[in-house]
Design a binder for these strands. Structure first.
Lengths: 182, 182
DNA sequence: TCGTTGTATTCAAAAATTTGAATACAAAAA
DNA sequence: TTTTTGTATTCAAATTTTTGAATACAACGA
């Protein structure tokens, strides 16, 4: 389970509130690599706190519930470290669009084409979004410390992934158009 | 949920036993796009059968449980068709290795390097494996009917995905080596 | 002949993820 | 000024996925 470890990893970089962690999953690093809902994040933070992997400092907020700023503990850091040291397995793409490859012939080709065109645009937008994440790290690459270099490299993987989808959409659209006009 | 629809899609191509479907997920198309365990497949097939989306013909086998050959029904085909017609959203990569980007600096760079080298080999193996799936379809591309063209295209996506990981591993290893020797 | 691999199905429990809410106030935009 | 967006947390339920078994026989190789 990487949700737990992804949260620990976020907190190993800086203390964050649950809201901030959820935002990381929705908009930042997580948007490309690992999505988690607010509820999942809050539930996991509560569990991690009970287990002693994280602690929080409650910031009183006038007239509403305290804001909790979570930090990783020594124990949490050790857990993360142990996990990082163990080999991890690649995961399947788990992409709904794949089903089109199996059964696309059941729907009119126009439906397939429309869907691929839609996806092309979505991935194009994602390229821009993920590139923004990289802006901070992509500057003077030669002087980057390891911490930032790792971040840069993995973000590059995300960018490439999205770019590859755009390329694939173009190729697929061309191939389908050719086959249909035959 | 694409498990249901992936199973329906398999069965839309040909009738299969639960064992065969599970094999598709483990070794065939699914190995790259959507993994599901045997138990998941059998449970889902039972549910689909109860709902009338699939039927099975029981093949008696001397001395053991019947073998069930499942086929998609008209209703199942309609469900699949409806699902394919609806737009689908891209999914996050959901890759454990991503956590390295966030917190790789907590472990010695040798650990990161070893892990990336290991992953490189795994993806290299996957490239070969997925290319095998394509063999049947990659022949005389210009005469491929749509059904097979779609399959070919989506398998190409899987090949590229694995190849991209290999390329990324190479780039990452080079960049890390350079940073460490600085 | 003995172990391994492959065919074939089923049960049960635990863990993870998704979905749908509700609450509450501040700040910015319409 | 009214609505929308953003900050911030929590509860509950349903669904999905993972993990760990158990059963049974056939075929193949050592």
């Amino acid at each position: 389970m990487a949700l737990k470890h992804t949260i620990l990893a976020f907190l190993s970089r800086q203390p964050l509130s649950g809201y901030d962690v959820a935002k990381e999953f929705a908009e930042g690093f997580g948007s490309c690599f690992w999505k988690a809902s607010q509820q999942q994040v809050y539930a996991e933070l509560t569990k991690l706190e009970q287990q002693g992997s994280v602690t929080y400092e409650a910031i009183p907020q006038p007239g509403r519930l305290d804001k909790k700023i979570y930090s990783i503990t020594g124990q949490g850091q050790q857990e993360l470290l142990d996990w990082l040291t163990k080999p991890c397995e690649p995961t399947a793409i788990r992409e709904d669009l794949g089903v089109m490859g199996l059964a696309g012939h059941l729907v009119p080709s126009s439906v397939v084409i429309r869907e691929i065109e839609r996806r092309r645009q979505l991935h194009l937008d994602m390229v821009q979004q993920v590139k923004k994440l990289d802006q901070h790290f992509a500057q003077n690459l030669d002087a980057l410390e390891l911490k930032d270099l790792y971040m840069h490299l993995i973000i590059r993987r995300g960018i490439r992934y999205q770019e590859e989808w755009v390329t694939w959409c173009d190729e697929a659209l061309a191939a389908i158009a050719q086959a249909v006009n035959r």
